[in-house]
Design a protein around this nucleic acid. Structure first.
Lengths: 139, 139
DNA sequence: CTATTTGCAAACCCTTTGCAAAAAT
DNA sequence: ATTTTTGCAAAGGGTTTGCAAATAG
């Protein structure tokens, strides 16, 4: 984590590390979730610091913003150090990560062939009806 | 276009149609681009109407919000009636559409296999250095 | 005729900014 | 020692809201 920050030229402040640690729990928090959760460990952190850091980390590609499907939902944030793909539930909007590197590479080479471009990265978001919602809706 | 609106239960007002027509030019406008361009044909349209409609169309899946990679860029909007994928330039942020249905289906079945879920849809965004930027940067 | 949509302006609130103090390297 | 980062509070600006009038079906 600290090394990743050094790589991109950002200082390893405790605030920044707590943001990354929180994101590393992989529960895809909104900005406010993130702020509330970090405050438990680090009560003096300010919301402005969370915003500034998310923007910097996003610009460096260490953090991903996941845009909601529906207008009433808010953006969620995800750590992006290990490549992975997302599957979002169309009903409850829960996001699941899948660390399927081979698939990602396969998709990328497919994209390269089709677009005739050198695809650096591929961001893939699948939609589904998650298992929990499937059960709930059957009732 | 009118039929699509009927399908999702939205009335075909001239404002709404002008929004869809503008998006159908496929140049991925920001909200403000959209508003400025529509005003040329429809000077009385209000920004609030553009917002309301984008949200409704997004909720119905007819419009896609494309989140920028960097914090300084704004979201872009795209019509999503024909399935397609996006390739965004990491340097100038331009977005290109690729109507590659076979690839999309291939990716979806790959996702189904890997996640063991019934993937309804797959949203794929590749990153690249676009041809124009490649030339510019060589100089 | 009824339900939806529009447009205006105000309200809202999320996000950014400026700056001095603190902290990281 | 230098540069970055933090935190506060205020400013800013994008987005939403409420409501009466207009419009679609």
């Amino acid at each position: 984590m600290i090394e990743k920050l050094k790589e991109v030229g950002l200082k390893a402040t405790p605030q920044r590390l707590s943001i990354l640690r929180e994101l590393d729990k992989k529960n895809h928090p909104t900005i406010d979730d993130l702020y509330q959760n970090i405050k438990k460990d680090y009560p003096s952190i300010s919301l402005a610091t969370v915003y500034k850091n998310l923007n910097m980390l996003k610009d460096e590609g260490l953090v991903l913003e996941l845009t909601p499907l529906s207008a009433s939902e808010k953006s969620k944030y995800d750590i992006y150090i290990e490549p992975h793909i997302h599957v979002v539930c169309t009903h409850c909007n829960k996001i699941e990560d899948f660390y399927v590197n081979e698939a990602l590479e396969e998709c990328k080479s497919l994209l390269k062939k089709l677009t005739n471009k050198n695809i650096k990265n591929a961001n893939i978001i699948g939609t589904t009806l998650c298992d929990e919602c499937k059960i709930k809706l059957k009732k």
